[in-house]
């Protein structure tokens, strides 16, 4: 991913998170819990129609959260589900999934057929991946990153880990910028497409140089932390407050999950 598209996507995600949609209105902790429960439900469900109904629910949530549906479909289909589609394709054939033949063809004594079990295996695999990815991306598009990381505290994730993750997130931007500037400097001096061997050396030198800079940056960061009152124990400044709508949403999702799992298992 190019640095420019990386920054563009991040800025757009932050812009989506600041809109006044349904999911943006929810308390980040409840929202994280709801999305995690939905992903868990998608994982546990054994029925393709049940998972498909969860996918439709996800699309409904994205619309109610003022996310452009075309953007959302593009963002969720590329790259993982599209990749999974190619992975799933061979599974529809009898050589991978034997079973009841739907369509077959043969040549020179070799017969290849598409089986009902194969189609269902590939279908349920694809829709499960797509739905899970869609829910997670919906979470990232409707929650500010800082709030999302702080919300992890409800899962009893130690504050030190949350702080490290938050700091890591900020450094990623700095490092991407450093790498981008270095490449730009190399390009402006070289001016031609480099042979792959030289290209590998440049990537490795970039990584080595980045580590060198990162290591020396550590001291400056620690001094900055001390100057802002860090005493060795990380503290969270953001306090969450759940409203009635948050609890009602959680209740509604719990009912939906119970129904989906029950109806899916009983084959209704």
């Amino acid at each position: 991913m190019g640095a420019l598209s990386f920054f563009k996507e991040s800025i757009y995600a932050e812009e989506c998170a600041s809109r006044s949609g349904y999911l943006q209105y929810l308390d980040a902790r409840i929202k994280v819990l709801i999305i995690f429960l939905m992903v868990l439900c998608v994982m546990l469900s054994k029925d393709i129609y049940a998972i498909f109904s969860l996918y439709l629910f996800c699309l409904l949530l994205s619309v109610s959260s003022k996310i452009n549906i075309l953007f959302f479909l593009k963002r969720t289909w590329v790259f993982i589900p599209l990749f999974s589609l190619f992975i799933a394709l061979p599974a529809i054939f009898s050589i991978i999934t034997p079973g009841e033949e739907i369509f077959g063809f043969g040549a020179a004594g070799f017969r290849l057929s598409i089986t009902r079990q194969g189609l269902m295996s590939a279908g349920i695999f694809l829709i499960r991946v797509l739905t899970s990815v869609s829910f997670v991306i919906l979470l990232t598009l409707t929650t500010r990153n800082t709030e999302l990381l702080q919300a992890l505290r409800i899962f009893k994730v130690p504050q030190l880990f949350v702080m490290t993750t938050g700091m890591c997130y900020r450094y990623i931007y700095l490092f991407v910028e450093i790498i981008e500037n270095t490449y730009l400097a190399i390009k402006s001096r070289v001016g031609i497409l480099l042979p792959h061997k030289k290209g590998r050396y440049i990537v490795a030198w970039n990584i080595g140089s980045l580590w060198q800079r990162s290591y020396y940056l550590n001291h400056a960061v620690y001094t900055a932390m001390l100057s802002r009152g860090y005493t060795g124990e990380p503290k969270a400044l953001h306090e969450f407050k759940a409203s009635v709508l948050d609890w009602l949403s959680l209740l509604a999702v719990l009912i939906l999950i119970t129904l989906v799992l029950y109806l899916g298992d009983t084959g209704i």
Binding site: T164, T165, M167, R170, I172, F175, S214, Y215, L217, N218
Partner: peptide
Amino acid sequence: PLLAIAAA
């Protein structure tokens, strides 16, 4: 901070 920097 080294842990966060190393993770990034």
